[in-house]
Design a protein around this nucleic acid. Structure first.
Lengths: 199, 199
DNA sequence: GCCAAAAATGCACGACCGTGCTATTTAATC
DNA sequence: GATTAAATAGCACGGTCGTGCATTTTTGGC
């Protein structure tokens, strides 16, 4: 591992901290340089542009999320068990991965949903991929007769996305101690409504 | 209505447009000045500081939301009917109020959830008030035996908050034409699960 | 229509933004 | 350990940020 990679990795880590607390708009070259005790041009040469820095930070966040959520969840058996594990690991993955603030993808979604560009495209693709993962697991659970066959998998997946946002807002904005409880109960409510004998 | 108020109102309207598309970080004095064809110092003297501008924009957004959601919804009879009306009017209230982009409160939540200050406090208070409104309506529906008496009103209210976020992301980030459909179906799913005979 | 008050402008300021280029330091290779 | 290449620092640039103040324009009351 060359010197370059070491510094590069350290810059990315500090950059993620900034994004987690201050969002992507707060991830500036100068600010990152100061926090990492590097010169501003030193940071610049590592990424080529501010836009590239933000994009790379987002990709790093996606890697972190994969490690924190998807990889461990896939040790559970396919179907409802894995779906539940995915949801549980989804909640609070950011602090569990060492980030000091909120989820970078929640920030990115809000900041770029009306701003075209490479960052937006990457957010869309990543979210699309993750929702697709949930959908496939729901469909697997349907095949296994753990969930009703007539329900809309995409629908349920996006309900879970909503619950994730609920949890995030309760946790970080409202500082509500019941955040975990409400999100997990919400999950069970949805699953209960999706079991039973079918219509 | 004095000249000052006229300009002030115009500035707020343009400011809301900026926030809706670029978030609060994008609402700068210079940018607002250019858009409104006013000098930068002209904008400054109207608000006193950039922080005050953002706070006032947020309050204006809250007023807009009240007019677009709460006022019309309260013409429906209390209980489940009013709750459904509240939810329906909640979805897409921003474009319906003339805003060109997303919901200012979604932006504010993401941008300020880890940043202390007056803006954060106002977001917390406003969201708290709105959730409280939902909770009271749910409880009213419980009294009227439209919803099960044993369910947790706060829980359901936050489920609806999640659905609102789902709708917002589907609409603006994913540009999914099924956004309305999925959100409304989600509402009915939750209500169905909250009716029935009680445990 | 005049005149005081109000509103908006012009200009300047220090700070920070992103981006280049050159110089210097540091690391890897023989 | 000397040499070469890689990595970082220093510095300068135009642009925008928020903020102040003096000046000019506009407005409203008489």
């Amino acid at each position: 591992m060359t010197k370059r990679d070491i510094t590069h990795t350290r810059l990315l880590q500090h950059g993620l901290d900034i994004i987690s607390v201050n969002g992507f708009a707060g991830a500036t070259l100068g600010g990152l340089a100061e926090r990492a005790n590097v010169s501003k041009s030193g940071v610049f040469v590592h990424f080529g542009s501010a836009e590239a820095l933000r994009l790379e930070l987002l990709k790093t966040a996606a890697d972190l999320a994969r490690q924190a959520i998807i990889e461990p969840a896939f040790q559970a058996p396919a179907g409802l068990q894995r779906l539940r594990r995915l949801f549980e690991l989804w909640l609070g993955w950011a602090p569990r991965s060492g980030l000091p603030g909120g989820c970078p993808f929640v920030s990115a979604t809000a900041e770029f949903d009306d701003v075209d560009g490479a960052v937006r495209d990457y957010v869309v693709a990543t979210l699309d991929g993750f929702i697709g993962l949930l959908v496939r697991e729901i469909q697997e659970a349907q095949k296994l007769r753990e969930l009703r066959g007539d329900l809309d998998a995409k629908n349920l997946a996006w309900q879970l996305f909503g619950l994730y946002n609920t949890h995030h807002t309760l946790q970080r904005l409202m500082r509500d101690e019941q955040a975990d409880l409400i999100a997990l109960q919400g999950f069970e409510t949805l699953i209960q409504a999706s079991m039973g004998p079918g219509k």
